[in-house]
Amino acid sequence: MKALIFGSKGQLGRGLAATAPQGSQLVQHDVDTLDITDADAVGRAVKDAAPDIVFNAAAYTAVDRAEDEEALAQAVNGDAVGHIAQAARGAGARFVHVSTDFVFDGTASRPYAPEAAPSPISAYGRTKLAGERLASNDALIVRTAWVYAPEGGNFVRTMLRLMGEREELGVVADQIGTPTYAPDLAAALWDLADKRVTGVHHYTDSGVASWYDFAFAIQEEALAIGLLSRAIPIAPIATSAYPTPAKRPHYSVLDKTSTIAALGRTPPHWRVNLRKMLNEIKTNG
């Protein structure tokens, strides 16, 4: 299999490269080698690569900044998806696009099914939904949430740093979702693509947490393996006590029933994957 990965230097892009099936040939592009908002450049890249499958792991992910830069976010998260989808279709390649829980408004009280009506409340969510709608009809679109990995900027690494620097922390407790370990998400994308699954599906780790729960678990697990040398108080706070430019869903748990059926397995619980990630940091730095 020959695969083309856009967004290869991000958390998910690295995960896709690390979990690629043995013998796969990879062509990788990131912002330093290709501007995905340039339709002609995207078309040439796909034509030159002649891939069997195209993964789009590239995105504008600065959620708060997107409120002031929605046109740029739209170009990357929306229009560029159309460019990639068209180029993949022209090359006869399967297209896998990654989207987000932010396409929902967070007012539900049970996990969002893939067919639930989107209603984004932020510029980031609106532009990601636009990308979904520009993907080809035979594409695989996988929504995920709260992605983290041993490298890159993410909540786990930020918490580890702050817990080492500060005497106490306040963490939002009224936003509920599910953390997702990027390498496991990447492996699921490969499996779904191999099974030629199409349409909209959801994938996260198993379980449910608030950001406060996630932070508390990070400290507990990091202390257990010696990544942190002391515990600090962590206080649950309301979203209203930590205002941000962008609104965020209060509840964005995703229903993975169709994905689990397609994969034939249930994702690990988020605490299991958190422990795995922290041990990797301890081992590899």
Rank of each mutant, 00 (worst) to 15 (best):
residue 23 G to T: 02
residue 264 G to F: 10
residue 127 T to K: 06
residue 122 S to A: 05
residue 185 L to W: 13
residue 55 F to G: 01
residue 261 A to N: 15
residue 215 A to N: 05
residue 65 R to I: 10
residue 119 S to D: 10
residue 236 P to I: 07
residue 234 I to D: 05
residue 266 T to R: 15
residue 10 G to E: 10
residue 44 R to K: 11
residue 10 G to C: 05
residue 16 L to P: 04
residue 44 R to T: 14
residue 150 P to W: 11
residue 230 R to A: 11
residue 139 A to N: 03
residue 113 A to K: 11
residue 155 F to H: 08
residue 20 A to W: 13
residue 266 T to I: 14
residue 231 A to Q: 06
residue 157 R to T: 10
residue 23 G to P: 05
residue 71 A to V: 08
residue 158 T to R: 12
residue 140 L to C: 04
residue 264 G to S: 05
residue 270 W to T: 05
residue 208 V to P: 02
residue 92 G to D: 11
residue 279 N to H: 08
residue 84 I to V: 15
residue 229 S to N: 09
residue 207 G to F: 02
residue 122 S to Q: 06
residue 207 G to D: 02
residue 78 G to W: 03
residue 137 N to F: 04
residue 143 R to P: 06
residue 113 A to F: 01
residue 46 V to T: 06
residue 158 T to E: 09
residue 40 D to L: 12
residue 167 E to K: 04
residue 204 T to P: 08
residue 104 F to S: 00
residue 123 A to L: 09
residue 181 Y to T: 03
residue 67 E to Y: 12
residue 162 L to P: 01
residue 193 A to Y: 05
residue 117 A to G: 01
residue 247 K to S: 12
residue 222 A to N: 06
residue 117 A to N: 01
residue 94 R to L: 15
residue 180 T to V: 03
residue 133 R to L: 15
residue 201 H to A: 13
residue 271 R to G: 00
residue 222 A to G: 06
residue 174 D to A: 11
residue 219 Q to W: 09
residue 109 S to V: 07
residue 190 W to S: 00
residue 13 G to E: 00
residue 252 S to D: 01
residue 227 L to M: 06
residue 243 P to E: 08
residue 218 I to N: 05
residue 59 A to T: 04
residue 170 G to R: 13
residue 181 Y to W: 11
residue 117 A to E: 02
residue 34 L to P: 10
residue 145 A to I: 02
residue 38 D to Y: 02
residue 186 A to G: 11
residue 143 R to G: 07
residue 102 F to T: 04
residue 87 A to Y: 10
residue 91 A to I: 06
residue 56 N to F: 02
residue 252 S to N: 03
residue 90 G to A: 15
residue 99 S to V: 08
residue 259 T to V: 07
residue 48 D to R: 15
residue 58 A to L: 04
residue 196 R to S: 14
residue 106 G to L: 03
residue 58 A to G: 11
residue 25 Q to S: 15
residue 124 Y to F: 11
residue 94 R to S: 15
residue 106 G to Q: 02
residue 254 L to W: 01
residue 85 A to D: 12
residue 197 V to K: 14
residue 175 Q to P: 10
residue 34 L to G: 08
residue 16 L to C: 06
residue 215 A to M: 05
residue 271 R to C: 00
residue 73 A to L: 13
residue 93 A to H: 15
residue 196 R to P: 02
residue 200 V to L: 13
residue 95 F to Q: 00
residue 122 S to Y: 06
residue 182 A to M: 13
residue 226 G to M: 08
residue 222 A to F: 01
residue 264 G to K: 11
residue 3 A to Y: 11
residue 147 V to D: 09
residue 203 Y to D: 01
residue 101 D to F: 12
residue 38 D to C: 07
residue 40 D to F: 06
residue 163 M to D: 00
residue 245 P to M: 14
residue 217 A to M: 13
residue 17 A to F: 01
residue 169 L to E: 03
residue 120 P to C: 02
residue 128 K to F: 09
residue 205 D to E: 05
residue 211 W to M: 15
